[in-house]
Design a protein around this nucleic acid. Structure first.
Lengths: 210, 210
DNA sequence: TTGGTAAATTAACACTGTTAAGTAATTTTA
DNA sequence: TAAAATTACTTAACAGTGTTAATTTACCAA
């Protein structure tokens, strides 16, 4: 069935076109300026055609949110070569902050916008796998640190949430303009890194970053 | 000029009616379901009348955001009676978490939504005074802790951002449904408190909360 | 060539924030 | 008190939003 295959491929191509157009719009103009009509204009189809490939606007954002996680995972590949788990933990936090600050629109749709979670809630199998995988990576790393006696044993859940909370808090406050007065824009990433450094420094006082 | 006064009062009354209606809508139905027409319906005026009292929708949200800060300050009055600065710091974090989780819509407009900051950006004197006051309270408390040798000396800015970041991160992740899989909804506030407890515990190991 | 299916479009609905123009009510002035 | 001016409010409209139903166009098999 060569023609059915080709049709399927065409369908996937258009889906990709829609996602590319959406991505372009939302990186250039931000989440709230992405409209179905603008997407349609960009791919030179009528607005309703988009609905033949995606259930609704939220589903498009859900896909972009997944794409964002792919980018984040990509970024974290440099962790593998780091032996010291505590250093790896620091680098993971640094990566997270850099990712958020360099890809604010992706960060937005991944961790701030409600849209992707609404799609998830309406799915029969409701697992946020991309998110859970990322969280598990953090948890596993923490377990490794504790096992090797690098940080004090404590409830993993609470520690993981504390660390994730901190880096997410910093990035989301920055993205939503709540740190403008506190720190000038050009210094904000270094200050975030020093906040992270302070936290990990208090976890293990023997840890000092070069 | 008694009549000018009365007019002024009437004007303020209607402003208050509009804010009350907006608040009711956004507490009951959430930020994104507050519309100018619904507000107008609720106060039984035409939609355009609202524009005679507020420049635009963002300005209404800015006022609600200020109101939210009043509520938060109100909540923090119980801090005064606490002698130990470290305990006071814990209680401040606890209050922050409780405030956010019990008033998610207020928290949203105060720390997540862009609208209030857009109003601020268009003002000639662009100071986020309510926010800065809150941040200063945290900083001062940290200075007190350091002065009394309760926590190790470190750059205030970085420490303040780390702590604020953490509590904000936890609350905003919860509000935006990113912790649903990690922690069941009914346990979420206790886990947040234990995250905070863990952080403050690592800052000063002599500190254990009852 | 015809019939049937798939793909895309047009038109429309019910909303949204916001502005311009017009009306009604009130106050000031003569 | 009557006319003029100001204030308060409303109606109508614009340009946009997501989304659905009905319709047309394009394609492929018999």
């Amino acid at each position: 069935m060569g023609i059915a295959e080709r049709k399927e491929k065409q369908k996937q191509d258009i889906k990709k076109m829609i996602l590319d157009a959406s991505m372009q719009l939302f990186i250039e103009q931000g989440f709230e300026h992405v409209t179905m009509r603008k997407i349609a204009d960009l791919i030179e189809y009528s607005p309703t055609t988009v609905y033949l490939y995606f259930k609704d606007k939220n589903e498009i954002f859900f896909q972009l949110h997944e794409l964002g996680f792919q980018k984040l995972v990509e970024m974290n590949k440099n962790l593998a070569e780091i032996q010291n788990p505590l250093l790896r933990l620091y680098k993971m936090g640094e990566n997270y902050i850099n990712f958020g600050m360099n890809n604010p629109e992706f960060y937005d749709v991944m961790f701030i916008q409600r849209a992707p979670m609404e799609v998830l809630a309406q799915m029969e199998v409701c697992d946020w796998s991309v998110g859970d995988t990322a969280i598990d990576a953090l948890k596993n790393l923490l377990v490794e640190c504790m096992d090797k006696g690098l940080i004090q044993k404590a409830p993993i859940e609470a520690v993981a949430m504390a660390i994730w909370g901190m880096v997410h808090g910093l990035v989301s406050l920055a993205i939503r303009e709540r740190l403008n007065k506190m720190v000038p824009k050009e210094h904000i990433i270094p200050v975030m890194h020093s906040s992270l450094n302070w936290l990990l420094g208090t976890i293990d006082s023997s840890f000092k970053r070069e």
